[in-house]
Write a protein that binds this DNA or RNA. Structure first.
Length: 226
DNA sequence: AAGATGCCCAACCGCACCCAG
DNA sequence: ACTGGGTGCGGTTGGGCATCT
């Protein structure tokens, strides 16, 4: 049994896209729109899998894709959203105009993870890393700090040292500063974003069904992703 | 100068979800 | 209610480039 393959692998190209392939895909989508990805490659004259075309378009060729370095504001927003949503890259990307889930995912894994570690925070939980051995923890912190220093030299857009950044953003551990204590359940909990008892998901624009399932507020912001 | 190592990012893979029939 | 096709998503891989030794 098993699923049928999404395409005839024997007759499809793989690997890096050529300029000619890019041009074919762009011109086809410009004249026909983003239709059925499965049939698009054949119609566009591409020897590619439909999934590959979709990925190339969404992550690279789309005219509204923003290229280049992430700003400090985007950094902070990603951290906030990740603390709220976890690895829901598509939802996070939906809150960062011009950024793709793939780009954010890569950026998270290569930069932000390290940044959080340098602040002694677990990138998954956004909580302080705690070991039962104080000495072990100290050496861990030193090692992380050394690594982070070498990375942040020339990376930090603000040009501040890690300590200075911490001073400037005392609430960098956003989860700690804005959420209620995490209960034992791993399920995302409602976070009181303001005195209005509005879930933070809603506060930043998610509908009740997006981001967290526990929120009862109906469509605060009609401008939702997708 | 050259090989080794590390980093970054585009692209692939496979599973999950959605929805029409 | 069930099934299967199409699409979306998140994790992972691998190639190219930069830096180190």
């Amino acid at each position: 049994m098993g699923r049928s393959p999404c395409c005839e692998k024997a007759h499809t190209n793989k690997g890096a896209w050529t300029k000619e392939e890019d041009d074919l895909l762009i011109s086809y989508i410009k004249s026909h729109g983003e239709g059925c990805w499965r049939s698009l490659p054949k119609a566009a004259g591409l020897l590619r899998c439909g999934k590959s075309c979709r990925l190339r378009w969404i992550n690279y060729l789309r005219p509204d894709v923003k290229r280049g370095n992430f700003t400090e504001e985007e950094d902070e927003l990603i951290i906030k959203l990740h603390s709220l949503l976890g690895n829901k890259w598509s939802l996070i990307a939906g809150r960062l105009p011009g950024r793709t889930d793939n780009e954010i995912k890569n950026y998270w894994n290569t930069h932000i993870k390290r940044k959080l570690l340098s602040h002694g925070l677990d990138p998954q939980t956004h909580r302080p890393i705690i070991t039962n051995n104080h000495q072990q923890q100290q050496s861990l912190q030193i090692a992380i700090q050394k690594k982070a220093d070498s990375v942040e030299d020339g990376h930090s857009s603000s040009g501040m040292s890690t300590d200075e950044e911490t001073m400037r953003c005392p609430d960098l551990n956003l989860d700690l500063s804005i959420s209620l204590p995490r209960p034992s359940s791993p399920k995302m909990e409602v976070i009181v974003a303001s005195s209005q008892n509005i879930c933070l998901c809603c506060n930043i624009g998610f509908r009740s069904s997006e981001g967290c399932g526990s929120c009862q507020i109906k469509s605060i912001n009609p401008h939702v992703i997708r």
